[in-house]
Design a protein around this nucleic acid. Structure first.
Lengths: 211, 211
DNA sequence: TAGATTGTTAATCGATTAACAATC
DNA sequence: TAGATTGTTAATCGATTAACAATC
């Protein structure tokens, strides 16, 4: 849930977090000032302080913030301490990559099932995660209250699979098929278009501070 | 190259493009007004007009824009009519997915080589794209003037591979390893952190209008 | 105490929106 | 001509930055 934070601030929080985590143990177990963070990340120090103010209890004049607390506060705010089950539809190369990635776990996500219609794959398991027939999605998700799905099927099946997901009670969809998806109100789709990202960074001089 | 366009405008252009392409043939071969686009995408019509003004020759009062021209102008601006060779480092599930994706081509990108150090893979080809030993990267890229690389290796090797890329003259790096990469000045890294994206959309109510 | 750092209030800057004249 | 749509100039809104008092 967004707690009245501007979208710009929200995008900077992970940058701070990443920086704080990368700090040497000495600082990590001590304090850090907003000024130091701002200098390191080449941001304005007031901006950093305002951003941090929106998620943390606040720092102390002269000493700054307790680094560990700050890390913890940002993580809480971004929800990394929650845990959510995630399903993957389409167990091709992309889908397998999702199921094998071990970075999801750090962010509180557990990929708990893959779905496909290829009978050579259905019934197997990948990285100890089962692959079920796509017809079982609805039952599986409703029973477990799954809210999050990743679509890694070919373009031509994406909308169909998307419908199955919304029908299964899924509310947040990360779509890797480069096709626009229509969803009912109350469902969020995020289209991850890798080609477009490549075009933006290499040809349009576009850069966000995302990490 | 960014032609003095605000980053917000730049992010909206692909949204317009996507919408225009999805239009029925009748409109696609005729005209469309900024107002109609704005209504459909739930944006302010002046904003749409300003955005379009920055990339197109302009529309006509009463009739609007020639749809086909508008599509073409946005595509040109975003550089989809250029062609760039792209290399992929790390031919695991993720890397294979990149090499097999047919959507790159629409955006003017050609994945022309994969690199790995696993001798079971090196020498094979995937989707007709060769996989070479990673030690051959520098030669390969310098000879062909490759500017763009995708990193899909495990976290622990990401920085090392990143160094090889910059050493090979690569200027734009799309990084799928969820670890921060240090690069020399003049090189752009874009970190694609899927877990973070998932966290932002499902827990922070974050949504961009990217497509 | 003196100085570093905090959080807040005011000023600036840029993007969005509103109003409107120009055009086909 | 009348009306829809364009592009522009002015007003509004929100985010960033500057100035500063409060605190340890």
């Amino acid at each position: 849930m967004n707690k009245n934070i501007s979208s710009q601030t929200l995008q900077r929080l992970p940058v701070y977090l990443n920086y704080l985590i990368s700090l040497p143990e000495k600082i990590k177990s001590g304090n850090i000032s907003a000024t130091a963070i701002a200098d390191a990340l080449q941001l304005n120090n007031v901006q950093v302080r305002k951003d941090l103010a929106s998620v943390s209890q606040g720092g102390r004049p002269r000493t700054g913030y307790v680094t560990a607390e700050l890390i913890s506060d940002i993580q809480s705010f971004l929800g990394f301490k929650n845990r959510d089950g995630v399903i993957v539809a389409g167990v091709g190369n992309f889908g397998k990559a999702m199921m094998c990635s071990d970075s999801f776990s750090d962010y509180g996500f557990d990929v708990i099932c893959g779905f496909d219609c290829n009978e050579n794959i259905v019934g197997t398991s990948i990285n100890r995660i089962p692959v079920l027939d796509i017809s079982e999605m609805k039952n599986f998700c409703l029973n477990r209250n799954i809210r999050i799905g990743i679509i890694t099927v070919p373009e031509k099946h994406a909308q169909e699979v998307c419908n199955m997901m919304t029908d299964s009670g899924i509310k947040y969809i990360l779509n890797f098929a480069s096709v626009h998806l229509n969803v009912p109100k109350g469902v969020t789709v995020h289209n991850e278009n890798i080609s477009l990202t490549l075009a933006m960074i290499s040809r349009c001089n576009f850069s966000e501070n995302r990490t």
